[in-house]
Amino acid sequence: MASEPLSPAETRRYARQLVLKGFGGSGQQALKAARVLVVGAGGLGSPVIAYLAGAGVGRLGIADPDSVSLSNLARQVIHTNAGIGQSKAASAGHFAQALNPEVRLALHDAAVTADNAARLMADYDLVIDGTDNLVTRRAVAAAAAGLGLPLVSGAVSMFDGQVTVFAPGGPSFSALYPDSASDADLPSCEATGIVGPLTGVIGTLMAMEAIKLITGIGEPLIGRVLTYDSQGARFAEFAF
């Protein structure tokens, strides 16, 4: 099927990407045709949603069962004080639509579980997981693997974060997170805290990985984990 041409307004909107060597019109057309599901509209999902909407992803799904609270606003920057009490999916959708009305939105005001993950994800080409618990992350990873979809995954805690990509033919989620690991073994954000800009760093890296996967540019983090120590201002990488 032929790609839908960019409108004059889209050409102006994406001008800096269209002149980018190695990206150009074909990269922008790939973004316009892409269908991306972001699971979690919180600290990591906020920059992912902002940058993918801004970049021109054609269809952006947002899944989150929670509502906006005051304690979210220091790091979940697409939400506002006026949106406290509103569904996070709806709040994120308002932000994305205001930023770029060219993007088609699908809002899922529900938790992603082992029972519904495959059904929710079946209409997408790429999944991005910004959730904060292993139960949901395992359900998302299993469904993505079953559907043959690439999955961009990020995690943050206190001052540190990491991002990786699980893709067909690459190492599985269990290669990095053993089945024996549980949420009881991991510190919660509520208990240990988190510095807001850290989620921006990791979430933005996740958005970049998504754009690389969609457009075919660069080398995605498949089988590699990129880590960030914000206190030491150091990035590192390891393979798995």
Rank of each mutant, 00 (worst) to 15 (best):
M1S: 14
A2H: 11
S7K: 11
P8Y: 01
P8A: 04
Y14A: 01
K21A: 11
A30L: 06
V36M: 09
V38F: 13
G40S: 14
G42E: 10
G42Y: 07
P47W: 13
G56P: 11
G56I: 06
G58V: 03
R59A: 05
D64G: 03
V68A: 08
S69P: 00
A74V: 09
I78S: 04
H79D: 05
N81C: 14
I84V: 15
K88W: 13
A92Q: 06
G93N: 08
P101K: 12
P101N: 12
E102F: 11
V103R: 08
V103N: 10
H108Y: 14
A111W: 03
T113P: 00
A114Y: 05
D115R: 10
L126Q: 03
L126R: 04
I128E: 06
I128V: 15
D132G: 13
N133T: 07
N133G: 08
T136W: 04
T136M: 10
A145H: 13
P150H: 00
L151I: 04
V152A: 07
S153A: 15
A155D: 10
M158P: 04
D160P: 06
D160C: 12
D160A: 15
V163G: 04
V163H: 06
F166N: 08
G169M: 06
S174R: 02
D179W: 00
D179R: 02
A181K: 09
D183G: 13
D183M: 05
A184K: 10
D185C: 03
P197M: 11
L198N: 01
T199L: 07
G203M: 10
T204S: 15
T204H: 14
T204M: 13
L205Y: 13
M206F: 12
A210E: 09
I211A: 01
I211C: 01
T215H: 08
G218M: 15
L221Y: 00
I222N: 02
S230Q: 08
F238C: 04
A239E: 14
